[in-house]
């Protein structure tokens, strides 16, 4: 059957019988993707435990979790934004900006908690400005956030005059967020798990987030259902930046420093993780759990490469190949559906 015929709005008997089968695939596609990722991650872990005695240790495991738990908070916002059909290239810059604004305010004499809240608020404001350009001016998310990425990075350099802020005077109570732990479990990991659990739950159950799926799945149909899709897109953009700002504050606590160049290139890793986890760049699909698994996969691969003593120069290339493979599988599955 030629593609043109397949576009005809009529289902033939043959197509009907195919779609009967497709129902099972579709119903399980989401969970299949997550199950598949878990299998791949476990297989990698088992293989690695033979290859390196250091792999299956609590120390290494904790290091891996630590390495992606703060980024994981940013992934949550990115996934929701991808579901609505948007994208945010500015998250790396916003993480750094939140960090340097909070840090600079602290150095100016503000207590670190208030300084951090202001840092997060400023990040939300950046999201609101982007949301304005997307919904009112009518630019797309890609271009808007690309501009924001460059502008906000520039702001970081202006605020710090290009040099990292040393924050060793941060009070211990504040430093504990990023550096302390509760019965051996770092607070960072606890925060990460709570954020992921809350948003995963909300995304599945809350009415407000259901509108995100409607808008991303078919914006026109959402408008024809009385959903104010512009509002939805605006608030999701704000949410993504706010979570990036929150992550920035945690990084500040963890490093005891605010680096204006921090997080450059982070957005690509984050988008890759969400997409590997099943979020579609066309909007309408994605889960937080999947995105976190995508992040975990990338992290396990990185850790494996290090333990196997493979040159760091290989890391990016291999991560890129994983992304390409994941997106190809996604595309092939979706093409069958269309």
């Amino acid at each position: 059957m030629s593609p043109r015929e397949a576009e005809a709005p009529i289902m033939t008997a043959q197509m009907k019988s195919e779609s009967q089968g497709a129902r099972w695939n579709l119903a399980r596609l989401g969970s299949m993707r997550e199950a598949g990722l878990i299998v791949i991650i476990l297989a990698l872990c088992i293989a690695m435990s033979f290859a390196s005695p250091h792999f299956l240790t609590w120390g290494n495991f904790r290091a891996m979790l630590m390495s992606f738990s703060i980024e994981g908070i940013v992934v949550v916002g990115m996934t929701i934004l991808l579901i609505v059909g948007g994208i945010d290239l500015s998250v790396g810059s916003v993480v750094a900006f939140s960090m340097v604004v909070s840090g600079a305010l602290f150095l100016a004499g503000l207590d670190p908690w208030t300084a951090s809240l202001i840092g997060i608020a400023v990040s939300a404001l950046i999201g609101a400005v982007m949301g304005f350009f997307v919904t009112v001016v009518g630019l797309n998310h890609f271009i808007t956030s690309l501009a924001a990425m460059v502008i906000v990075r520039g702001l970081c350099l202006i605020v710090t005059k290009g040099t990292p802020l040393s924050l060793f005077t941060l009070p211990p109570a504040f430093k504990a967020i990023g550096q302390g732990s509760f019965h051996g479990v770092p607070y960072v990991i606890i925060i990460f798990v709570v954020v992921v659990a809350v948003f995963d739950f909300l995304l599945r159950r809350a009415t407000a987030f259901r509108k995100v799926f409607y808008t991303g799945s078919n914006e026109k149909a959402a408008q024809y259902s009385g959903i104010r899709t512009k509002q939805v897109k605006f608030w999701v953009t704000v949410l993504s930046s706010t979570l990036a700002g929150f992550a920035g504050v945690i990084y500040m606590s963890r490093f005891g420093a605010a680096t204006p160049t921090f997080g450059a290139g982070m957005e690509l890793n984050i988008i890759a993780a969400a997409v590997i986890g099943g979020a579609s760049l066309n909007g309408g699909s994605g889960t937080i759990f999947g995105a976190i698994l995508g992040m975990a996969l990338l992290s396990v691969v990185t850790s494996s490469l290090i333990l196997l003593d493979i040159s760091v120069y290989w890391q990016d290339m291999i991560k890129g190949c994983i992304l390409l493979a994941a997106v190809s599988i996604d595309h092939l599955l979706h093409r069958r559906k269309a």
Binding site: P9, L26, S217, A221, K337
Partner: peptide
């Protein structure tokens, strides 16, 4: 009810 069922009537993948 929209005339364009797939384009603006239903959410196909939901």
């Amino acid at each position: 009810l929209s005339e364009d069922r797939k384009g603006s009537g239903v959410f196909l993948d939901m």
